[in-house]
Amino acid sequence: MKDGIGMNEFLDLDALWKVLVTSLVAGVGLATLFSLALVGLSSGRVSGRAGAGACLLLVAAGIGLGLYTMLAA
């Protein structure tokens, strides 16, 4: 790159890293919480079911937040 012409000229690096981190947290988090919910449900214990319910609530909240942030953008 010549002087004064960096990646920032073409690319919003600030937005890029935010997208990367948010995607990782949300995408992996959603998959993890749902998996833990399945583990809890299949455990057959009351505490497992309660934990599963909490995980599914968090998944629903995450989906709601995702929809809200997309529409607010």
Binding site: D12, T22, S23, A72
Partner: peptide, 16 residues
């Protein structure tokens, strides 16, 4: 699909 949804929502929100 979870990955796709997360990346699409994030890119919409941050305008990327």
């Amino acid at each position: 699909e979870s990955s796709s949804a997360a990346v699409i929502f994030a890119s919409s929100h941050f305008g990327f």
